[in-house]
Amino acid sequence: MTSSRSSLWLRMLWVAPWMVGLALFYAVPLAMSLFFSLTDATMIEPPRFIGLDNYAALARDRVFWRCVANTAIYAAVAIPLAMILSLWLAALLSTRHALAKPVLLLVFAPTVVPLVAASMIWLWIFNSDHGLLNMLFTAAGATGPNWLTTHGWAMSALIIMSLWSVGQSVVIYLAALRDVPRPLIESASLEGLGRFRRFVHVVLPTIAPAILFNAIIQTITAWQVFAAPYIMTGGGPDRSTYFYSHYVYDQAFVFQHMGYAATLGWVQCLLLAVCIGAVYLCWRRLGDLR
């Protein structure tokens, strides 16, 4: 630890920018947001204190419940799929095959593609008349659905698209898999454990921290999904892909209900915290099962 000679004030200069930043861009906005959520503030009119009315209004807001349900469904399907897919890809890519490195690049590349550009690509692929996917369907003798304009299919399309960018979790799993001690695997195979049981009983427990890390990151991402549905479906058809963050954006900047949007923001924070807690508990249970 450095110099007890220099005065406390001088030493605090090191972290001063961040303390000012935290106060200015986090603490002040959060305090403002808490205040707004108790008012009927709009963009133009001065806020009027209305107590907990905004929070009470949530219970009656059917669009709010719709968005919560949509986001929850998306998270409940996309996260497990992404977890399984990325773990499988990492296991596959950790083999010493000549193709492993080039394929890793192809798997990771989509994660640096801007979401807006990715949305354009997938809009084109999911295009019902001329898109790549339905072209393949036709070639196979089937008729593809109208992906982005049909109830149910639109949500599936967004989930498929989200699986394209699992690269980050794959790389994290890959690093974790490299840490699994080789002697442990060898002794397990000497005891006659097959590939699958070796993976479940030896490899999975060792990479458990990486599983938790990925699950939490993906939960956070799922609750903030915005760009892809906003651009590709606009929340439709019939609000079936209307996600939580999209609703907050609309309430704040389209309907200009700043007070209500602030309320929605706090509830989002709360729901996210609950989901992270649930993920942690699931992870603990998974550890008990083995």
């Binding site: 861009f25 906005p29 949007a261 924070c269 996210l272």
Partner: peptide
């Protein structure tokens, strides 16, 4: 790091 941006964007815009 964990605070969702939608919570921050409303007050930040006003600020």
């Amino acid at each position: 790091m964990l605070i969702p941006f939608p919570l921050l964007m409303v007050p930040q815009f006003i600020l």
